[in-house]
Every structure is written in C-alpha cells, then in structure tokens.
Simulated scan of single mutants.
Amino acid sequence: MVDMKNRSAIAIWKGCDPTVADAIRQFRDCWEPYSAESKRYPICRLVEQLIDPAMATYTATLPSLYMGHIPGAGTGVAFSEIMRLVGVDTMIRLQRRLLRAFVLTEDRQSERDQQYVATLETLIELVWACKRKQPAEQDVCGLNRRRLRVFCRLCGTLAELASFAEAAEAAEDLDAKSDQWINEQLRMSQLRGADEELRLSNLYCQAHRPKLPDNKWNPAYRKAKRSIEQFDLELARVSRQCASRGTPQAKSGDELVDSYIHNYMLGQTLQLADEAKLRNLARLMVDSRLSDRKKQILMLQRLDFNQSEIARRLGIERQAVSKAIASIPEIFRLSRPQ
C-alpha cells in the first residue's frame, strides 16, 4: 500500500521483481538527505549504491530480447549512469517509450512479462520520485526550500512560491540578468502592485490565492475552500485506483462508486506519478459536482439499466435520475461495454 499523504512515497507495483522491490524499499528508507539538486548528497549516487546492483541481478535472469527495453541494460552502462547522463526528465520519457515499445511488440502477458512490466513501471515511479524529491534544507534564489509546497493546496497547479522558484532557477541557468528573469519580476510586481512587498503563497497558486491584487477576497479561493474535504477524498480515491488498476481500489464504501472510478480510470492514461493531472482531475470532479449518487447512476447506466430501473435500484424518483444525468459533463460518462 502506498502512503498517498507522503510526497516522498515511491510506488512499488504489484508483481515487481522482489530484488528490485527490496532495493527500492532500502532506497526509500535512507534517501532523506538526498536530492537531484544536492552536491553533497546527489540522488544518483544513492541509485548507484542501491538500485544498480539490484538491476544487475534482475537483468542477469532475463533473455536478451528484454534488454533493449531497460535503459543501459546489456550495454555495460549502469542505470544510474544513464540517469546521470540524460537527466531525470529525459530518463522518464525514455523509460516510458521503451516500456510502450515492449508492450506493443513483445508482451505476451506471460507471468514473466507481467513481472517485467511491473518492474519497469516501478522504475519509472522511482525516477519520478527522484525528480520530485526536495533537499532536506536548501535556499534557492533567497527562498527557503523548506517553505516550498510544490502544488497548490486546491488543485494541480504549482503554488506561487514554487512557481517563482522554478522560474528563478531557469533564469539562473541562463543568465541572472536575462530578459526572462526581469520580465518575471515585472509581472509579479504588476500582480501585487508596485508599492507592495512581493508576497508569494506557499499554499496556493495564483488562481486560488485567498486575496486578489486589490486585497479583496478571491471568489475562486472561497469556492474551492468550501469543498476541500471532497477534493482530498476524490484525490485519494483516484490515486489509490492508479496505484492498482486491475481491480476497484477507491475504497469509497460503495460498490457502485468503486466500480465507476475503476472503469473511468481504465479509460485514462494517468499513472500515480502524474500527480498534477490527478489533482486537476479531482478538482474537476468537485467543481462539476460529480457526487457519489451521480457516480452510482453512471455505473448503472453502463450496466444497461434504464432510468426507471436506476430509480428503483437507488430508491429515488425517476425525475431525479433524469435531472442528475442531464447535469453530468460528457467527460465523466462511461462508454457501454461492446
């Protein structure tokens, strides 16, 4: 079970090779001071120490046709070295392309293939977690990284402070006096007012910050704040379902609701690592008023119940069913099985 409240969690897919899974658990237990940004504790060094030996042991058991779908396997270049050479972002894209190629060309759904896919998915989760991992303590452009909360509390957009730090880091990589850096500061000054001290929210994005530039309450913030418990609930459900796609995992307490979320997520390409997209999906569910009652109705529709049968099954009026269906956005409707 993946701890969804812990941003440092690394999802280990069911069926992953035991040697690789054990190495990732050890990695997770001792990676606190490590990050991709740290010079004293570079995270690639920890990957080299713990993951490379496990990968060598695992790949030694594989036929040669599997090797081309694991970065570095069979070439004499370690997994950590590939990660160091191409960078974390490129490594994630490379892994996904190689996995997709395997599924399309070689996967026969044998027991070995299923373990191989689960292991590759787990390695993608590992590299994605390395990308997100923040240093234990580090200042970026005068901002204390301990304050950085990457995502807005209410959606999948970067919080203002994290967004500003990201723009500052990008500008530093180019030129601290570049036009990008100057324009960013001017834009933020215009948003806050030229005479007001620059204050960046650690909890909210620009759209959801509590106060507008004119110091009035933000209606979008108030609306989202009222539904924060439902947002957290929907986010936990879709995240649990992404962690294990084979069976209903939402754990809502209602079989129809769980089945709806399971079937809906099967039609998506989201993975547990796609945290921003999952947060935005949860926000959309809440803002669209996709209640559990509507999820039940949608699932019964997929099972070929008509409106009268749905009403009898749920103990409500048929008119209520019709009204609920009319209010559901097309994006949340399920296609009926062939």
Rank of each mutant, 00 (worst) to 15 (best):
C152N: 01
W31N: 08
H262R: 08
R100T: 03
A311Y: 09
R336E: 06
T269N: 00
L62H: 10
L272M: 08
L99N: 04
V2M: 12
R7C: 02
A311T: 10
F332W: 10
L300D: 11
S335P: 01
D17S: 10
I316V: 14
V286G: 13
R40G: 11
G68Y: 04
L300F: 12
I297D: 05
F151P: 01
L94Y: 09
T105G: 02
V257E: 00
G72H: 08
L272C: 02
L278K: 01
A224H: 11
I124L: 07
E160I: 02
I328Y: 02
K39T: 14
E184G: 00
R93P: 00
V77M: 09
A36I: 14
G87E: 04
Y221R: 11
S327R: 11
Y41D: 11
T269K: 02
A162E: 07
T157R: 14
S291V: 06
V88G: 09
W13D: 05
A276L: 07
I51Y: 06
L123F: 11
T105H: 01
Q338P: 13
Q180Y: 09
K323W: 05
C155A: 03
C152P: 03
T119R: 08
E111S: 12
G246N: 13
R97T: 10
A21L: 07
G74Q: 03
E309H: 14
L203N: 14
K133D: 02
T19W: 04
A36G: 12
T19N: 14
L298H: 09
Q271C: 05
F332T: 03
F164P: 00
R97Y: 07
D52A: 11
L298T: 08
N202Q: 11
L174M: 04
